[in-house]
Amino acid sequence: MKNMKKWIAMCAMLGAAAQTHAVVGSWTKQTAHYPIYFSGGYAEMPFSSPTSMPTLTSFVTSVSYQWTGYGNGNTSRVVQICYSAKYSATIGRCHNISDRQQATIHNFDGLDASGKFWIRHQIWGGTYPAISSALDTVTVMHQ
């Protein structure tokens, strides 16, 4: 009987652990680049969750992104993906994604999936204003 209780407890823990990585939904947004007006300047493009998504009921399990650079002849750039909570004006939790234009990351796992994500481009060199018709994409998987 004692071994049976241990076995049941272990199965329950394994089941709970498996559920933490389940994906039950996702949302995807594309945003066009904003202009950058001077060398060293930056643009932050927002990716908002659907308005129908309630706050604090779904949590991020992974984030996929794809970004495109500005074609102004810049000599250097930093690209970051950031997060802000729903109804917040504070952008934070930024992660440098300059080295990979497309990836799936787990830096935001466990955060409220109804928040807003941002892709920030900062560039140096080239001609200004830097104007691009490219689209960046963010997909948020959540449970």
Rank of each mutant, 00 (worst) to 15 (best):
I8E: 09
I8W: 11
A9C: 05
A9E: 12
M13F: 10
G15T: 11
G15N: 10
A16W: 10
A17T: 13
A18V: 04
Q19T: 14
H21T: 10
H21C: 06
A22I: 11
S26A: 12
W27C: 08
Q30I: 04
T31K: 10
T31E: 07
H33Y: 02
Y34P: 00
P35E: 05
G41C: 06
Y42K: 05
A43I: 04
A43D: 01
A43Q: 01
E44Q: 14
M45I: 01
F47T: 02
S48M: 04
T51I: 11
T51P: 01
T51A: 12
S52F: 10
S52H: 11
M53Q: 12
P54I: 02
T55C: 03
L56K: 14
T57V: 10
T57A: 05
T57I: 03
S58C: 03
V60R: 05
V60W: 02
T61D: 04
S62R: 09
S64A: 14
Q66T: 15
W67L: 06
T68D: 04
G69C: 04
G69Q: 09
Y70H: 03
Y70I: 05
Y70Q: 06
Q80H: 10
I81A: 06
S84F: 00
A85I: 00
Y87I: 04
T90G: 09
I91L: 04
G92Y: 12
G92I: 00
G92H: 11
R93G: 07
N96C: 00
S98R: 05
R100C: 03
Q101E: 13
A103H: 09
A103K: 04
T104M: 01
I105G: 01
H106M: 05
N107S: 15
D109T: 15
G110T: 11
G110C: 07
L111I: 11
S114W: 06
F117G: 03
R120C: 04
H121N: 06
H121A: 02
Q122E: 14
W124H: 15
G126K: 07
T127H: 10
